[in-house]
């Protein structure tokens, strides 16, 4: 089932001195149940493209469709709250909230009751393979792998069907990398998510169902 579709998407950064065309005409369709990997050299526009899929901004040209609806027409805050979640290389957890509170955050945002959210958080912790001791730790006390698991748990906590990850294993060792990739794969295959992962690592890409190669803001074959 098609979840996300990019149609001739362009994106330019407008800086003081110049215009950088980061994405230059990408069309692609993402479906539930698959793990997609985006690869390409640095500066090829991967993160920019992912941000557009996350609805953090609108394409300068072209369209992104979410379940057939134009991203420009929908409430993008709501979209991120309910449908799509993003995981970053630098984890981006709330540093002043505990693992549990971080995971509960999107649920509370959706208005889920605290007790319910707590239970669900515990469940998610288990699913991403976190020890219960981590529950009440602050991010800076956790290892990189743990932080990324918390980030994924938080991403999944919102529910929805799209998980976007920008080099989620970039700061992790091989052992942890493998675990995270397995987690992402599971998410795509058993939880009915469309999982889109940016990576530099060929081993990670090898695990994906589909691999998109980018160069100069375009997809290449």
């Amino acid at each position: 089932m098609e979840q996300l579709r990019a149609e001739e998407v362009y994106y330019s950064y407008q800086t003081k001195y110049q215009t950088i065309d980061a994405v230059r005409g990408i069309s692609y369709s993402f479906e539930i149940g698959h793990l997609y990997a985006i690869v390409g050299e640095s500066g090829s526009g991967k993160s920019t493209f992912l941000s557009l899929l996350a609805g953090l901004d609108l394409p300068t040209k072209g369209k992104v469709y979410v379940s057939g609806e134009d991203m420009a027409e929908i409430n993008r805050d709501l979209y991120r709250r309910e449908k799509a979640s993003v995981v970053y290389q630098s984890f981006n957890l709330f540093s002043l909230l505990t693992a549990q509170e971080n995971i509960m955050f999107p649920m509370e945002l959706k208005g889920i009751k605290r007790n319910e959210a707590k239970l669900k958080a515990a469940e998610l912790m288990e699913r991403v393979g976190l020890r219960t001791q981590v529950l009440h730790q602050y991010p800076q006390m956790m290892s990189g792998g743990e932080q990324q698991r918390v980030a994924i748990a938080r991403a999944l906590a919102a529910g929805g069907s799209i998980l976007l990850a920008d080099e989620p294993t970039g700061n992790l060792d091989t052992e942890n990398e493998k675990n995270i990739v397995r987690l992402l794969k599971e998410t795509a295959h058993t939880m009915d998510y469309a999982v889109i992962v940016i990576t530099h690592n060929p081993e990670v890409a090898a695990e994906a169902d589909y691999v998109l190669r980018m160069r100069d803001g375009k997809l290449i074959d």
């Binding site: 805050d77 979209y79 991120r80 993003v86 981006n92 540093s95 999107p106």
Partner: peptide, 13 residues
């Protein structure tokens, strides 16, 4: 700033 950015990415208006 980062906290705000994360909040935004999680869909907070």
């Amino acid at each position: 700033k980062k906290r705000t950015a994360v909040e935004r990415s999680l869909g907070m208006s």
